[in-house]
């Protein structure tokens, strides 16, 4: 079935109908989440009780809006903190890895490359428990040996950041490596001929060339960190990021305030996602 080969009208029509149904299936859950954020009722379900902004700006119980709900605001702050760290670390290490894999050849390079890809095929829950077990073992050993407390190695934000960093770095490495591979080394050589130092040439020529990929992977890292659930679930301590807070609220029974948060998340994800595509778009 291709455009140049004619097909019976009925088959074509069925195909179109299927594609339309598929996109409806994709859009439906997100659409209802958004719509019920404006329902003037304490349950995110029918019947429709009228339009309201209360779940965003409301101040009186039970209509407490997102912007006045302490626990959710705090969780958003925690998520942003984690995402900033994860993104910065992942991009820094990812850039180093890109230079290592594209510019250097050494023994065991292909083995190291496969090891670098491994975090992609380890289920997030397993990644979480393995880091939890390992960090606790170190903490126990250190505490037995020194008699001091090592709270940083107990479930908490540090472990959440490390856990997310451990697999998001792979994505950053792949994105930045792909861009570095397209770089023409003669540009850097020209800079060296013109008297630049090695580091100077990289800073002035190579890094600006890599910038779109670096920005794109930073945005993708923030997005992935914000949304991560499985790994975070196993490593979280007393301060929980947004997805964990929402999960707890969802299990207790939800009010449309969750729809309002979700709507904000959907808007944020769409903006960040499109941003990452724009960065990666070849300009020349």
């Amino acid at each position: 079935m291709i455009p140049t080969v004619p097909q019976p009208g009925f088959a074509k029509w069925c195909y179109r109908a299927y594609v339309t149904a598929f996109f409806l299936y994709l859009a439906l859950p997100l659409a209802v989440v958004c719509v019920f954020a404006f329902n003037n009722s304490v349950f995110p379900s029918l019947p429709w009780e009228g339009f309201t902004w209360a779940w965003f700006f409301g101040t009186e119980a039970p209509f407490i809006g997102v912007f006045n709900e302490r626990s959710i605001l705090r969780a958003i702050g925690t998520s942003a903190f984690v995402a900033a760290w994860v993104s910065a670390l992942a991009v820094a290490v990812g850039t180093c890895n890109a230079f290592l894999f594209v510019r250097h050849s050494f023994r065991g390079k292909s083995l190291l490359y496969i090891l670098m890809l491994l975090p992609l095929i380890i289920p997030g829950v397993i990644l979480g428990i393995s880091i939890l077990v390992f960090a606790s073992a170190i903490a126990n050993t250190l505490e037995d040996a020194t008699g001091l407390w090592f709270d940083g190695l107990r479930p908490g934000l540090i472990l959440v950041i490390l856990g997310q960093f451990s697999f998001i770095t792979t994505f950053a490495t792949l994105v930045i490596s792909a861009r570095l591979q397209k770089f023409d080394p003669s540009l850097e050589e020209a800079a060296l001929n013109l008297g630049a130092s090695k580091l100077g040439a990289i800073r002035q020529i190579t890094l600006p060339f890599l910038m779109p990929a670096i920005l794109a992977s930073a945005v993708v890292s923030i997005l992935m960190s914000f949304e991560n659930f499985n790994t975070t679930l196993m490593l979280v301590g007393s301060e929980s990021p947004l997805t964990i807070t929402m999960f707890d609220k969802l299990k207790q029974g939800s009010t449309p305030v969750l729809n309002a948060v979700s709507l904000l998340l959907i808007v944020m994800s769409a903006v960040l996602g499109i941003l990452s595509l724009l960065f990666q778009k070849p300009k020349r």
Partner: peptide, 12 residues
């Protein structure tokens, strides 16, 4: 839809 958190999709 896949840029949106899995939690939001499941909630939907």
């Amino acid at each position: 839809p896949f840029w949106v958190s899995e939690l939001v999709r499941t909630f939907g």
